[in-house]
């Protein structure tokens, strides 16, 4: 038998983009569960803890959406520089949402691990 072992890199890249897109909000909620962060700091935190190359500009529309959904809260905090920071925290509903997402993630992980064996 002869197999052509050539990976379809375009397919993998598209799939990875979808995974990234789908998991970014989950990652943000996990990070915000520890403490409050301002936008730039949150980007750095994502970079430290994950290997995901996040387009920084896309983070703000996502944070806005999470805020509109009532998952995160935000507040402007004045700084000595005169340029305030907008801090994000997980709301009560956000904490409950995160718990639910963690359950789903765990179940998915278990299922995939079983399939991969």
């Amino acid at each position: 038998m002869y197999y052509i072992c050539c990976m379809n890199s375009e397919f993998v890249q598209n799939w990875f983009s979808q995974v990234k897109k789908g998991t970014l909000s989950y990652i943000i909620l996990i990070i915000l569960d520890e403490k409050e962060y301002y936008g730039y700091e949150l980007v750095q935190e994502i970079k430290i803890h994950t290997t995901l190359e996040v387009a920084e500009g896309t983070l703000y529309p996502l944070l806005n959406r999470l805020k509109a959904e009532g998952i995160v809260d935000s507040k402007w905090v004045e700084q000595e520089s005169g340029i305030p920071r907008k801090y994000y925290t997980l709301s009560k509903s956000g904490k409950a949402t995160l718990t639910e997402m963690q359950k789903i993630w765990s179940a998915l992980e278990t299922a995939i691990n079983k399939l991969q064996k």
Binding site: G39, V43, K86
Partner: peptide
């Protein structure tokens, strides 16, 4: 709000 947020990001990154 949007302008302040972008401005804050630029400031923090270039400060």
């Amino acid at each position: 709000d949007t302008l302040m947020e972008i401005n804050s990001h630029i400031y923090e990154a270039t400060n």
